[in-house]
Each structure stands twice: as structure tokens, then as C-alpha cells.
């Protein structure tokens, strides 16, 4: 807001996750599969964001967790998000702005 002169500001999308074991693997998977990922922390929370589009791949999360993981389990980690949940399927969850 404070920099309205910057043209075509890149819009971020992101997730606030509970800071727990499963989220650690999810964040690692996100870092691996997306460009420009920034991770920050508040008490109890981990925030992960990247420009425009963020994907969570089931296969990557399973590899980091070392066990099977259904994308619907993501409901147990998510606290909040910004962006639009563009797709949520068996193999991936995508958060992106549409327009």
C-alpha cells in the first residue's frame, strides 16, 4: 500500500500452517516445488508464501513425511491462507489468484 508507484506489483499467495511435524514436511515440499518461497514464523505458526501461485504436491509431501499422505489431511495443518484455492485434488492443492 505504501508503494503505489511500483508498477505491476507481484501479488503473493500464501498459507499459515500450524507449526507441527506434518507441516514441516509440507513446507519442505512447497519449498522444493515452487519458485521464490519465503518462510516466516510466529509463535505456533509457520507462514509460507510465494508469488502468484503455490502448489503442494502429494508425492513430494509423502517423500518428506515418509508415509502415505492424502491431500485432504492438509485440513489438519492449515490455519489460514491468502489467495484462492484453485484446485484441490488427490495429487495436488493449488493456491493462486485467478485474475
Amino acid at each position: 500500500m505504501s508503494t503505489p508507484t511500483t508498477p505491476a506489483k507481484v501479488r503473493m499467495v500464501g498459507l499459515d500452517l500450524q507449526e507441527n511435524d506434518d507441516s514441516r514436511a509440507i513446507v519442505e515440499a512447497i519449498e522444493e516445488d515452487n519458485e521464490g518461497v519465503a518462510v516466516s514464523r510466529m509463535p505456533g505458526l509457520v507462514r509460507v508464501q510465494c508469488p502468484q501461485r503455490l502448489v503442494i504436491n502429494q508425492a513430494s509431501v509423502e517423500r518428506h513425511l515418509g508415509r502415505p499422505w492424502e491431500t485432504q489431511e492438509f485440513q489438519l495443518s492449515i490455519v489460514s491462507y491468502f489467495g484462492h484455492i484453485n484446485d484441490w485434488d488427490d495429487d495436488q492443492v493449488v493456491v493462486a489468484w485467478d485474475h
Binding site: 500500500m1 506489483k9 501479488r11 503473493m12 499467495v13 491468502f82 489467495g83 484462492h84 489468484w97 485467478d98 485474475h99
Partner: peptide, 15 residues
Amino acid sequence: FEEQMLGGLFPDLEF
């Protein structure tokens, strides 16, 4: 609010 909603969401809704 300012960054995520005014900066992120509302440009989407401008469409």
C-alpha cells in the same frame, strides 16, 4: 488487511 486483501484480493475482484 492492507497487503493481503487490498493488495491481493481486490485486484482479483476488479475483473
